[in-house]
Design a protein around this nucleic acid. Structure first.
Length: 428
DNA sequence: TCGAATGATTATCA
DNA sequence: TGATAATCATTCGA
């Protein structure tokens, strides 16, 4: 039905003094009478204009009659000429469009993520890249990789299925339209350029649908990626031993719980975690300890007692061996150098009201032994938080609530603090 | 199932 | 640049 208005329109344009038509009319069998010709054309126009008001059967019959009309070839040729000009002007208006940058971005992204392009290795490479970006060294990395790969593969499969569907539909529709146009070309002028234009319109429409598909796929990949990369989602608690090692270090350096980079590395190695995890742990520990000292008293006492016991046993051995006391490796952590019992001394000595005698190694050991008895006797019975805080007072925390300006006796007077001491946060 | 604990992230500051 | 404080997201135990 589209052909009728087009015919009418073209006709109207063409009739206004078109030389071709005049020639056709002269060549045709329209007779010699000008009025008769006009009447003839008027009739044709009338028939065309009223064709839509008629029933289908009537319209078909009229169409057939028009097709058989003696003026038809002449009109058809004129319309062809007009059409040619119209197509040319349309083509001039629709120059080659530059590739859509958004589409290019989407394509590149899908390629990079391994959704588009060669299947083999794409997802794995992306998973590996994502893992590398996450910087994770978790033991279950391979499991997560396979999870990521599986999900990416799902997305890829859906993407390709949909893409195929769209392409198939596009081809089918194009073929259908081309057939239709070819069929119509018998009754109205349709140039190859017009067909070409129609095909490009169809392709543009379908490519816009494809772009939506690509966009959705990209979003899905991004969500998957963010879930995979977001370390908070795959957080695992450190194992008990690691926590003990960290706590031991923390409480034995309570006046200055800022491990140096070396200490962090050593702690990380011992705990089988990364240095940044050690930093995170100390950051969290400091802030949480400071916020709620009372809550940590029990824990502090426990580690103080434990460290003291270990230190004492070491020093006792040292005495037996007639060697200088070095309360090294005091904690349950085993070989880690918990050399900074100075904090502990400070804390437990304060309990007895003794003043800390920096640098007096022998005195430290002795007072340690003395206070150890006290600590051990107290540890079991300290349920009262006030009493607990008296026992293990956070002397390192200054009035501003920070360690920053607190004196760090451990780093100065610790009996075992050597040049290679783990205390290096002197800026704090 | 809920709340506490905890590891990680982020904004801000010195 | 590292520390702090706030917050998020997950884990874990009751």
């Amino acid at each position: 039905m589209d052909e009728q208005p087009r015919l009418m329109h073209s006709h109207g344009v063409g009739m206004a003094g078109h030389p071709g038509l005049a020639q056709h009319m002269q060549d045709g069998t329209a007779g010699t009478d000008g009025d008769g010709r006009k009447q003839d054309i008027g009739d044709i126009l009338q028939q065309i204009m009223t064709i839509t008001d008629q029933s289908l059967d009537e319209a078909q019959a009229r169409k057939h009659a028009l097709n058989c009309h003696r003026m038809k070839p002449a009109l058809f040729n004129v319309l062809c000429e007009i059409k040619e000009k119209t197509v040319l002007s349309i083509r001039g208006a629709q120059e080659e469009e530059p590739p859509d940058p958004q589409l290019m971005r989407l394509d590149n992204m899908l390629l990079a993520e391994g959704v588009a392009g060669p299947e083999k290795g794409g997802g794995a490479a992306a998973a590996a890249a994502a893992a590398a970006a996450a910087g994770g060294i978790g033991a279950d990395n391979s499991t997560e990789h396979s999870d990521y790969r599986a999900k990416l593969s799902q997305i890829r499969q859906i993407y390709h299925t949909e893409l195929e569907k769209y392409e198939q539909a596009c081809n089918e529709f194009t073929t259908h339209v081309m057939n239709l146009l070819r069929e119509q070309s018998r009754t109205r002028p349709i140039s190859p350029k017009e067909i070409e234009r129609m095909v490009s319109i169809i392709h543009r429409k379908f490519s816009s649908i494809q772009m939506q598909l690509k966009q959705s796929t990209c979003e899905a990949v991004m969500i998957l990626r963010s879930r995979f990369l977001d370390a908070r989602r795959k957080r695992r608690n450190f194992n008990k031993q690691a926590t003990e090692i960290l706590n031991e270090y923390f409480y034995s350096h309570l006046s200055n719980p800022y491990p140096s980079e070396e200490a962090k590395e050593e702690l990380a190695k011992k705990c089988s975690i990364t240095v940044s995890q050690v930093s995170n742990w100390f950051g969290n520990k400091r802030i949480r300890y400071k916020k709620n000292i009372g809550k940590f008293q029990e824990e502090a006492n426990m580690y103080a007692a434990r460290t003291a016991v270990s230190a004492t046993s070491v020093s006792a051995q040292g005495s037996q061996a007639n060697s200088p006391s070095t309360p090294n490796s005091a904690g349950s952590a085993g070989s880690f150098n918990m050399s900074n019992s100075g904090d502990l001394f400070m804390s437990v000595q304060s309990l007895n009201g003794d003043s800390y005698q920096g640098g007096q190694v022998g005195a430290n050991i002795q007072s340690q032994v003395d206070t150890l008895r006290h600590v051990i006797s107290q540890t079991g019975g300290y349920s009262d938080s006030l009493a607990a805080s008296q026992m293990y007072s956070p002397q390192g925390i200054n009035t501003n609530g920070g360690w920053q300006d607190a004196p760090t006796p451990s780093s100065v007077t610790s009996p075992t603090e050597g040049p290679g001491s783990v205390h290096s946060d002197t800026s704090n």
